[in-house]
Design a protein around this nucleic acid. Structure first.
Lengths: 340, 340
DNA sequence: CTGAAAGCGCTTACAG
DNA sequence: CTGAAAGCGCTTACAG
């Protein structure tokens, strides 16, 4: 327990409250509260006195009390599966930065792949009366029920589910998969090998890829699957599987840039040239995609835009203005680089 | 705004409170509160009735109110510079998981390298009356003052500063640097090239390295520096600098595994063999270190242990039991692999 | 532009 | 083991 050793006020140990500021400034607590939340509504001279009193006391508002009284917590929960090796990393980074800049506190929850952990985190978020929950996983009936009963805005990001509980900000994974297939075809590759993670979205991209591939009547393809989170290190096994194939693929389509990076490293270690002997496509356009040698062809998703749209939706809801649309499609962009 | 469409109770829109549960269970709110916070103190029969009432109403405690009344928020702030490409990633992952498992909510703040952002985040944390702040950056006088006046436990992790404000859980970066130097010497390398990030801890490791290196009278070395956060992509420039050196180094000592990975990729792309032509040492032992080809010699820091020690300190403080020691040294371990 | 006062939903001595 | 009641520190109609 730290004590205020250099308090220039009465040497009490408890934190200064609105009351302390109010009496020091010679105004009511209501006025101080107004000043703190919306400085422009108090007279300039009053504001001046309050500002001084706050500085003198070192007052820091108690948002537990404020949230209880106003039933606005100014807190948003961000729930993602993992922090490490995650394809969401850039999106989450942008999300947390933008939320903080907007004066919102971020509660971070790591769901892993466990449904019970997800439910605990949702419950914790609702206990804090968060203004919104930003969610990236599959929604269980339990979760749906809890969330529907609460006033928190439920924002599913990175994806566009058919029937979002609140709103969804993301893109069509199936369309992204098709786009990759068309790219692969346009470059003249004939024997793709798909590496698909076991998550539902990766499966949707696979569906999109396969649909577009077969629509062109483009012959057979092979595939492997990896556990989530898909990591660099999975590449070793994947590459071994590829080598055992009766016929080598000419392009490996990976579910993440880390995986793509791993496959490239393995291929080079085996003495192959990328893309001449074997091409590689990633997903997510993480920073390494543009920095690897060779640079990695990937699908860019604008994580910062997802973050901004989510935040705009939260704001609109707080303002009680136009109800947000249910789906916000931020699209994606295939970036062709050296690896394919 | 979602409404409870399938409420099996009176169809009011507001969330059920302790009062609702209490009257339904035929007990006082005090008893329900006790049950929620410490089930074992209420009689079994009473507990049963309360449990049913909670289930029937879908009650979720309001921790804003609870925290205000008890002045325990059960929330901990975790403040780190970045989420992406961060050397702390494994530690943070472990930290968040362990805190959540202990029923504590994690407030995440990204400080970047901005002092004003750091101060805003500390202020936000104190506004929420967090039980503890887990911090990884340099402490400004402003931050120190705010923190000293608050009852929150201030935990500096990843490092062992001389005079921690609260407690510190980490290891000696200088000792780690020396250990790397001794390793490099023991392997017979003669011309190291250091790549040091501009952060203070990286500088401490550099100091440790240089001290041990020169103590052995081991000749000259060269060096480069990189911006923080140090990333895979910095390697390209670093490698170009190395190639311009009058004499090639025989080992490159990097400030992070990502950087080491990048240097290896560049070296291989230039037709060099690692470690035969040029060896590489990383730092942090992130998952890629063991998965890269060649696998990367690195310094392991037990992030999960840092997390557990920090959490144990928070618990001890809450229990008002033995005051925690000021420094907890979790050490480090050099892991020799293929790259050096 | 400002104040008096009720109320937000809990916790916790105190008493029994 | 349980209850009545005060109090945590704010916000916000309402009135002026």
């Amino acid at each position: 327990m730290n004590h205020a050793t250099d308090a220039d006020e009465a040497a009490d140990t408890r934190a200064p409250t609105l009351d302390d500021v109010a009496s020091r400034a010679g105004v009511s607590t209501a006025t101080v509260s107004r000043f703190v939340n919306n400085p422009s509504v108090v007279a300039a001279a009053t504001a001046e006195r309050i500002r001084d009193a706050i500085a003198a006391t070192g007052y820091i508002p108690n948002l537990l009390a404020g949230g209880l009284a106003s039933s606005k917590s100014k807190m948003v929960a961000v729930l993602i599966p993992y922090l490490t090796d995650s394809i969401f990393n850039d999106t989450i980074q942008a999300m947390v930065e933008e939320l903080s800049a907007a004066g919102t506190t971020v509660m971070l929850g790591l769901t892993g792949v466990s449904e019970s952990r997800t439910e605990d985190l949702i419950r914790a978020a609702l206990s804090r009366r968060v203004d919104a929950i930003i969610f990236t996983g599959p929604v269980t009936p339990q979760v749906e029920q809890m969330v529907r009963r609460s006033p928190a805005l439920f924002i599913q990001v990175w994806d566009l589910p058919e029937d979002p509980i609140g709103i969804a900000v993301g893109f069509s994974h199936e369309a992204a998969g098709s786009a990759v297939a068309r790219f692969v075809i346009s470059r003249g590759y004939r024997r793709p090998h798909l590496v698909t993670a076991k998550g539902s979205r990766a499966q949707m991209r696979r569906t999109g890829f396969v649909g577009a591939w077969e629509a062109e009547g483009s012959g057979p393809f092979t595939e492997s699957s990896v556990e989530v989170p898909s990591r660099f290190g999975h590449a070793r096994r994947i590459f071994a599987e590829i080598r055992r194939l009766p016929e080598m693929p000419d392009v490996v389509v990976c579910g993440s840039d880390h995986l793509a990076q791993g496959v490239i490293v393995e291929a080079l270690a085996a003495g192959l040239k990328v893309p001449e002997d074997i091409a590689v496509v990633g997903f997510g356009n993480s920073s390494i995609a543009g920095e690897m040698r060779p640079t990695i062809t990937s699908v860019e998703v604008d994580g910062a835009r997802i973050a901004r749209e989510a935040i705009a939706a939260i704001r609109r809801k707080a303002d009680k203005s136009t109800p947000p649309e249910r789906w916000i499609d931020v699209g994606f962009r295939l970036i062709a680089r050296e690896s394919a």
